[in-house]
Amino acid sequence: MATYEYRCPHDGDFEVRLPLGQAGASVNCPECQRQAARVWSAPLLARTPRALGAALDRAAQSAETPEVVSRIPGRRAVSAAPVHPARARLPRL
């Protein structure tokens, strides 16, 4: 069995498991029953979690068109971590 990826214009991507070589150019979407076209993807990348896939897409897009920075970011406020009583008398650097 092989996993084939299809893209519905209405519901997005979904996977179908079929015998090797039995995948057609399009199948019906399981959600809306519209025709979904087959998407050619690299092996095993179809199982990439959506959040990771979105992060990889954003990283690739920022390589091509990075965000324009109009000012230097402000410094973050450093919060004082609570001091453990055993370390309270140690010298500070």
Rank of each mutant, 00 (worst) to 15 (best):
M1G: 10
T3W: 10
T3R: 10
T3N: 07
T3E: 09
Y4V: 02
Y4A: 01
E5G: 09
Y6C: 02
R7P: 02
C8I: 02
H10Q: 12
H10C: 11
D11C: 15
D11T: 00
G12L: 08
D13N: 14
D13S: 13
F14L: 07
E15L: 13
E15P: 02
E15S: 10
V16K: 11
L18V: 07
L18D: 03
P19S: 05
P19K: 04
Q22E: 15
Q22H: 13
G24W: 01
G24F: 11
A25Q: 12
A25L: 14
S26Y: 08
S26M: 07
S26D: 09
V27D: 02
V27M: 09
V27G: 05
C29P: 05
P30I: 02
P30N: 03
E31P: 03
E31W: 13
C32S: 07
Q33D: 12
R34H: 11
R34S: 11
Q35W: 01
Q35V: 07
A36I: 01
A36E: 03
A36S: 12
A37T: 07
A37G: 14
R38S: 03
W40S: 13
W40I: 15
S41Q: 09
A42H: 12
P43S: 04
L44A: 12
L45F: 06
L45V: 09
A46F: 08
A46V: 09
A46T: 10
A46P: 00
T48N: 01
T48G: 00
T48V: 14
P49E: 04
R50G: 08
A51S: 15
L52T: 14
L52H: 03
L52Y: 03
L52C: 04
G53N: 12
A54E: 14
A54G: 06
A54C: 03
A55I: 04
L56N: 06
L56C: 09
L56P: 01
D57H: 13
R58Y: 06
A60G: 06
Q61V: 06
S62C: 05
S62G: 08
S62K: 02
A63R: 03
A63C: 08
A63I: 10
E64P: 00
E64Q: 06
P66Q: 02
P66D: 07
E67A: 15
E67D: 14
V68S: 05
V69N: 07
S70C: 11
S70F: 13
R71C: 11
I72D: 07
P73R: 12
G74I: 02
G74M: 06
R75Q: 13
R75G: 09
R76Q: 13
R76H: 07
R76L: 05
R76F: 04
A77D: 06
A77S: 10
A77V: 08
A77K: 12
S79T: 01
A80Q: 06
A81T: 05
P82E: 09
V83P: 00
H84S: 13
H84G: 00
P85E: 15
P85Q: 08
R87Y: 13
A88E: 11
A88I: 13
R89P: 04
L90W: 10
P91W: 02
R92F: 03
